[in-house]
Design a protein around this nucleic acid. Structure first.
Lengths: 155, 155
DNA sequence: TAGTATCCCATTGACGCCCATAGGTACCCA
DNA sequence: TGGGTACCTATGGGCGTCAATGGGATACTA
């Protein structure tokens, strides 16, 4: 499965539709459901999107927690605030009004690849936060520890 | 089988009928019984709904508990207080009067997706509780340990 | 026979589908 | 290698269909 990489800015029309960048759309091929899932990043006023597989993993993980536990309730917030957005024949999705509001999206949408998932931002908001992230990384002399590769197979 | 995801608010009419959101209804397709099961959440004045499959799982889990134990008795209450609600031709269900009363539902019903099942709330009641859950999750720095998929492990 | 529970029909408003266009890119061919 | 052409992605708009809702008719039951 292709990874989500790179940044793309697309226009949003008055119906609330945005084209999902073609390279990102391709990563969803082979799903039983032709579309994506989005949920809020509580840390920022932005959203994250993923495919069916990841969402199922999330749901299964929640089921592993004891039923009726506080833990389960707290973490379910992601599922509760998620949206299932189908692609239209042109590969666009309709972003829910409530989403546009929290992210302060008006005319443009920024898609940010993050490997297994990607994020959805209002371009200016992203720039502001990204600037900070870069500074933090610099200040900290950021290093990245890679997982050792195990011959890589795919299931 | 599609997941229950997201929140939907629907109106309840004077006959006590509510439309179950179409995306949720779709998840019940292929069941021998065209409808859903509901049972009270003892922790809150709200209800949870699921399909046949999950109900069977629940019943099996009860059987795994020691016979005649307090635990078994307690959890059996779920099955005892459960209702089986059939869909009408338009995809609506009639919520039992007793349910409306405990949940303080009058004119609007909130459906909250939770993966394998979903919850039924009076909108305002939910808002009050959800606010707390989000804060708890944030405060705890809630991170979700995902079940491993294809050789992936979170760290 | 009154009350209740289904079913059927009608309305409306949102959403999905189809068509059309533009701009850019990749490809082909001379 | 330059130009031209065909394709494809992003975008806009019109229209039909379907989901949500309300009301009336009918069957069932106590």
């Amino acid at each position: 499965m292709p990874l989500f990489v790179g940044r793309y800015v697309n226009r949003i029309d008055k119906k609330g539709r945005v084209s999902v960048p073609k390279p990102f759309r391709d990563a969803f091929e082979g799903q039983s459901f032709n579309g994506l899932y989005v949920y809020p990043l509580f840390k920022f006023n932005a959203f994250e999107a993923c495919g069916e597989e990841f969402m199922n993993r999330l749901s299964d993980s929640l089921d592993d927690l004891p039923m009726f536990s506080d833990e389960q309730d707290d973490l379910s917030v992601i599922l509760e605030s998620a949206h299932r957005l189908p692609f239209d024949p042109e590969g666009r999705v309709v972003l829910p009004a409530e989403m546009l509001k929290t992210a302060a999206i008006t005319s443009q949408v920024l898609f940010v690849g993050r490997g297994q998932r990607f994020q959805i931002w209002e371009p200016k908001t992203y720039d502001a936060n990204r600037g900070r992230a870069v500074e933090r990384a610099r200040a900290r002399g950021a290093t990245l520890r890679l997982r050792k590769s195990n011959g890589h197979e795919d299931s």
